[in-house]
């Protein structure tokens, strides 16, 4: 996925960019807490404070940007949309035990896992004369 996609190009973003996770709040947060937290995070990001630049989600840590924070606040102001986000934010942000991996690109091959024997042969093109060696 491209770095330039703050929201929504990927299914995983629905969880990763859930407004509650972005703001570091749980679904029972009050309206005022949401506004206060959003404004605070925007200020921290403006001051480039490291503690504000990322946040935990059930699918791994994600980068926090002012656009994400603003979008999150706008989403949660609308009760109907808030209700939808509450559903997706039910998991605890740190719920995932394993380190999340990025979703592999669509055309990745299904490589059989027979130990190292069937590992890729990255030098194939050079070894077979299709490309110059380094």
């Amino acid at each position: 996925m491209s770095e330039a996609s703050p929201v929504g190009t990927n299914a995983i973003d629905r969880i990763r960019d859930n407004p509650f996770y972005v703001l570091g709040l749980r679904p029972d947060a009050t309206r005022q807490a949401i506004e206060r937290q959003g404004t605070k995070l925007l200020g921290m990001l403006e001051l480039e404070l490291k503690s504000a630049t990322s946040y935990p989600t059930p699918v791994g840590r994600a980068a926090r940007t002012p656009e994400k924070v603003r979008a999150a606040m706008a989403e949660l102001r609308e009760p109907s949309r808030r209700l939808e986000h509450e559903i997706w934010a039910r998991l605890e942000p740190e719920a995932m035990p394993a380190a999340p991996r990025d979703v592999a690109p669509i055309d990745d091959e299904i490589a059989p896992r027979a130990g190292q024997a069937a590992d890729p042969w990255p030098d194939a093109f050079v070894a077979l004369g299709w490309r110059a060696g380094r």
Binding site: Q32, E35, R36, T39, K40, G43, M44, L47, L49
Partner: peptide
């Protein structure tokens, strides 16, 4: 000191962040 605060706030207890 670099300050960040809402110029206008509906919240009675907002945060001010400074560096």
């Amino acid at each position: 000191v670099w300050l960040q605060y809402p110029a206008m706030s509906s919240d009675l207890t907002p945060h001010v962040i400074g560096r």
